[in-house]
């Protein structure tokens, strides 16, 4: 008996061809790539130094010298958005990492074990979901103090049940399949099966959920920074830029418009990317949130 590996039947070339035919994917991918490139670029070059305050140049309207204008400390908004991208991506990425790293093994374990372990996991999930995420994130940062690290933890914690749930649901659907039964018959253990067979098969689901959570993470980070509980100055962050902007909307609206657009575009790009991936790899799957 040959073991059929349950990978998508299509070849890589086929997937690529589909990807290039998928509008969501293309736009999303392009935007995400752009944001990532800008963030990386900011490590080696920004138009201006964002740690230097030039009070004399404060709240200047967009001009050839400062494309997006300057903020209340005379810093270049474009440069700050570039560096802020770094912060947003880092926070959201690590938060997704925490969620996947803890949530996926939990979900896979619950699905493999079933009964008591499964029930326990679902109850803990219920518990976490009962706390409005933002409220809890505010509480966590209020306890441990504001800062990027605590924001990551606060957002990460709420990614755990999300991934646990997705992993569990995906795994549950795969366990009864024939090739798993075959693997069990071959004497493979629960952990081995989970790693070798279940995980590759739910990878698509996790990838799609990952992009969604990444986008939500960026929104959450912006929200926390906006109420002053995220990254602290002098580290620029998009949410904080909006906080600084809101008292100056009348005289310096560019301070609010550009960082806000940076958030919208990044989140939009990630969501489109997620949609696209879901369409390409599994046309039947629909995204639920």
């Amino acid at each position: 008996m040959t073991m059929r590996v349950d990978l998508p039947e299509e070849t890589l070339a086929g997937v690529l061809a589909k990807a290039f035919g998928n509008r969501s994917f293309l736009i999303g991918f392009a935007i995400t790539l752009l944001v990532a490139a800008v963030a990386i670029l900011s490590f080696i070059w920004t138009p201006y130094d964002v740690t230097r305050l030039v009070i004399a140049d404060k709240t200047q309207a967009p001009s050839p010298a400062h494309w997006f204008g300057t903020d209340h400390f005379g810093r270049d908004i474009l440069s700050m958005i570039m560096v802020g991208a770094r912060n947003s991506i880092a926070v959201a990425l690590v938060a997704v990492g925490i969620g996947m790293g803890v949530g996926v093994p939990l979900g896979a374990f619950a699905a493999a074990r079933g009964s008591l372990a499964d029930e326990a996991l679902m109850r803990v999930n219920d518990l976490v979901f009962a706390f409005p995420a933002l409220l809890s994130a505010i509480m966590i940062t209020a306890i441990f103090g504001p800062g990027a690290v605590n924001a990551i933890i606060a957002i990460g914690i709420f990614n755990i049940p999300v991934f646990a749930r997705v992993a569990r649901a995906g795994a549950l659907a795969i366990w009864p399949r024939e090739f798993i039964l075959a693997a069990r018959a071959a004497g493979k253990g629960m952990t081995q099966i989970s790693v070798e067979h279940i995980l590759p098969n739910i990878a698509t689901l996790l990838l799609v959920q990952g992009t969604i959570q990444f986008a939500l993470g960026i929104l959450a980070e912006a929200g926390l920074s906006y109420v002053g509980l995220g990254a602290q100055p002098p580290m620029p962050s998009w949410g904080r830029m909006l906080f600084d902007a809101q008292t100056r909307m009348v005289t310096a609206p560019w301070m609010a418009i550009f960082p806000g657009m940076a958030i919208v575009i990044t989140v939009l790009g990630l969501n489109l990317l997620g949609d696209g991936i879901a369409d390409i790899l599994d046309p039947k799957s629909r995204r639920r949130r």
Partner: peptide, 14 residues
């Protein structure tokens, strides 16, 4: 798709 991407507090400011 656009609506999902807009932070509500920024939207509120606008």
């Amino acid at each position: 798709q656009l609506g999902v991407a807009v932070p509500n507090f920024w939207f509120a400011l606008m």
